[in-house]
Amino acid sequence: MNRQLSATALPALALALVGSVLWVQVANGGGAFEPLQPADPCVERTVTSRDEGIEGLTERLVLLGIDGAACILGVSRESLTLELAQPGPRTDEQIDALRRGLLSAVGRMKRDGTLPPASDLADEALANADLNGLLKKLILALPDSVIDAAVKTDDVLVRTINDLDLREVLADIDDQDDLNRQVNAAVTQAVKESLLQTLRDLV
């Protein structure tokens, strides 16, 4: 092998090997193998739930509500979720954003037609409600059309969200029983107020 060739062959081979390996790595996504980037919470997304009834509705509402709150606060929904999952005091800004986010979620679900009619939720809601047994039976005997005319799901949800002490709800996030008790009380109160309002409108 002549002198010039022996001086250039190995560096040329080394360059070719390095170039090939780096090209193959980058061409197959090297450099982009990073954790999932949080999506923009201000861009509307479709949310689904494996649950049905009130639980499914609550999950979809909360997912959309957190999106809305994160958009208002200018953070990702993931960082807001992680922050809210931590114990500790909540700022007024967070509580206000969460309430506005949940209210806007109700509005969006109403527009989308994804809010179920009240009659779909009546059986489940009555089972959890702290009402007289006779009254429960009477309500259950009503036709769906009467229930849907008397109680609007969006109205009940808006009243519930406005009545709920979100700060207390977040403080009890680890205590499922306490959380259910608070939400059920707020929903029952909202249904009562909604019925009263309907009666007032009829009169």
Partner: peptide, 23 residues
């Protein structure tokens, strides 16, 4: 030249390890 080529190969290998397309 041998040593320089070796240094280049090590640098290229380490850059390749920095950019794996998957685990």
């Amino acid at each position: 030249v041998e040593v320089a080529s070796g240094c280049l190969l090590i640098a290229g290998g380490l850059a390749g390890l920095a950019l794996p397309p998957s685990a």
